[in-house]
Simulated assay, not measured.
Amino acid sequence: MKKLLVTSIFGIFLLVLAACGGGGSDDASGSDNGDSGNEGESGGDSTLAEIQESGTVTVGFANEEPYGYQGEDGELKGAAIDIATAVFAELGVDNVEGHLSDYSQLIPGLNAGKFDVITSGMAINPDRCENVDFGEPEMLYGEGLIVQKGNPMDLHSYTDIAESGATVSIMSGATEIGYVQEMGVSEDQIQEASDIPGTFSAVESGRADATTGTEMTVKMALESAGNDKLEFVDDFEQPDIEGIPSYGAAAFHPDNDELREAYNEELQKLIDDGTVAELLEKNGFHPENNAPPEDVTTEEVCSGEKY
């Protein structure tokens, strides 16, 4: 993405809204105030002030359990959603308005002004840091592998996939696409699907031999699906590459420094008092193994220093 171009278009959009009185509008894909972003331009209020005044924050998320997903009752659920909800409550914002989006569309949607923040346990990495500003880490996690029952191709690592010529289905926009390629999986071995159920369907039908995603995502999705034709590879070998383990965090428009800094401040308080650990455990994470690291900052991850 061309960051400067997006920012320029975004700034023009803000000026038009300011001239028109700056109301917010929604669409089916999940959009919030069109003026989300450039604080103080045209003499307008900051995004943080607008959110606090309205009492509503618009959050983009992908349907990925247990990070962020929509329950059968329509309620927003997941560790990332719960953490963001707790943080915004501390900022005086009690209404979290979630908008479901394909994972690959979260960052474009944020930069187009559809969301105030995106939170889906998204892994911080240098490429993404070129397009959004991440908050501080909220969790860390590894990878998982799902295969057909009995693991007919004896797959236990990304290297096994590469060497066997197996095909792997991965959710579009997921970091795992880059991970498997780094471990030698060729482009023609990779299939993409719009969501986790789509990757499961590919494996179950035989169109793919395996699917991979973050460990908690694929494990819990398989448990929820009750699919006895697939199995989770318990002895999966974590790849020794940059980006693993992954550090998950909320992400903000590059112009929303005030909002991001306020979020980070309240997030740290909730980490310190144990609230974040409780919310992680509530959603099936290990409160210690998956807890946000004390000695890792987003700046270090973005620079590649802490991979």
Rank of each mutant, 00 (worst) to 15 (best):
V87K: 02
P66V: 03
I118H: 04
V87Y: 02
T56Q: 08
I83L: 05
G44E: 10
N95E: 15
I83C: 01
G78R: 01
T85E: 15
G44L: 07
T119C: 15
G92R: 13
S46Q: 11
A79H: 04
G113Y: 04
G55T: 03
I118G: 08
F61W: 09
Y69K: 02
D116W: 11
G121Y: 03
S120I: 00
E65Y: 05
T85H: 14
E65L: 01
G74R: 10
L76I: 06
G43N: 09
A86F: 08
I51H: 06
L48Q: 02
S120F: 03
G71K: 04
G60R: 00
A62P: 06
F61L: 10
I83Y: 03
T47F: 02
V93D: 07
A49C: 09
G109P: 03
G43C: 06
S120W: 02
A80R: 01
G98H: 09
T85N: 15
G78T: 02
G78L: 00
E50K: 12
G55C: 07
F61D: 02
E64F: 14
D94M: 12
T58Q: 09
G43Y: 09
S46V: 07
G44R: 13
L48K: 04
D45A: 14
A89D: 15
Y103D: 09
E64C: 14
E50W: 04
G71T: 08
N95K: 15
E90T: 09
T47M: 07
E75Q: 14
H99D: 14
K77P: 00
P66C: 04
Y103P: 08
F61E: 02
A79K: 01
E90Y: 08
F115K: 05
I107Q: 09
D116R: 06
G121H: 07
I51A: 12
Y69A: 04
E41F: 14
D94W: 08
L106H: 06
S46Y: 08
T58M: 11
V57E: 01
T119I: 09
